[in-house]
Design a protein around this nucleic acid. Structure first.
Ligand SMILES: [Mn+2]
Ligand SMILES: [Mn+2]
Ligand SMILES: [Zn+2]
Ligand SMILES: [Zn+2]
Lengths: 146, 146
DNA sequence: GCTGTTATTGCAAATATTTGCAACGATATT
DNA sequence: AATATCGTTGCAAATATTTGCAATAACAGC
């Protein structure tokens, strides 16, 4: 069963209704191999549905994030982007200076996340963790005199 | 020398101009003990300056984040909030379900950040790191059937 | 202190995201 | 299959954030 169907079933079990709009949005996001903005999802749905509204896309994405089926991150241009949990897992290292994003492995992070779980009872979800800082290129030219 | 002056001097050395607007915005943010939104900063400046524009506040905050003097995070209601680097350092554990933020220590994270530095040359800035996941309360009621 | 250069501002318009509400339709019940 | 319930949608309006541009003013050089 493809993951978008799994998500739909889970949502139904949680008491949410499965509308054609939600089906299309989830399917589009799950089948994309890149992060998508609400606007992009909306445009990709135009051929299939003339009437689907952008607000519905936003609301569905909010629901998915809230329920843990998608993650939201801030794109290079400052707009929100979304991806499903099936999106390959990696850290996002985002340079505050040039805005570029570098993917990175997060395995070494596990011990610390377990520590957080034990100490605070908080379960961090590693999909799409984002760290902000300075990339190699920008580190050289920028020494902050604290 | 108060930290807001340090920031102003650093910005000047980087070639940015020190305008009264920037002074007021930086001072307001640096002296606040909580995260502030652009709108809140703008309102707090009204008594001092009738004409300061909200767009200027946004632009100045962008500059501060870009240059590493402030951090931007997403507040409980989804709006952006800002804080200076002088803001006490801590992790933000943000629950995706209820939206609450739990402060946490980040010391145990250092080894992993050094690993990132060695491996990718990326210098993560720990001020205001944000982890998303499920808080203790919401963990119980929400089991995602993957 | 005056002058020139050019980064920064205010304003208005553009864009991005959220929200109220009445109509609609998914689901459970019969 | 028809009905009732109530979560969801479309639409329009509200709000949040960004951007273009001409006028302004910071600051370096004289
Ligand atoms: Mn990614
Ligand atoms: Mn904080
Ligand atoms: Zn960079
Ligand atoms: Zn919670």
């Amino acid at each position: 069963m493809p993951h978008c169907h799994t998500t739909l079933q889970s949502l139904r079990q949680l008491g949410f209704r499965i509308t054609p709009q939600r089906e299309m949005i989830i399917e589009t996001l799950a089948h994309s191999d890149t992060h998508l903005s609400a606007e992009e999802i909306h445009q990709r749905l135009q051929p299939r549905s003339k009437t689907i509204n952008l607000a519905t896309v936003y609301r569905t994405l909010d629901l998915l994030v809230e329920q843990g089926y998608a993650t939201r991150l801030i794109g290079k241009d400052g707009k929100f982007l979304y991806a499903t949990r099936q999106h390959s897992r990696h850290l996002h290292l985002v340079c505050r200076k040039c805005g570029r994003t570098y993917p990175a492995e997060y395995e070494g992070l596990q011990p610390f996340l377990e520590h957080l779980k034990k100490t605070y009872g908080f379960q961090v979800e590693v999909e799409h963790l984002t760290f902000s800082g300075l990339c190699p290129d920008c580190s050289q030219s920028n020494l902050v005199t604290s």
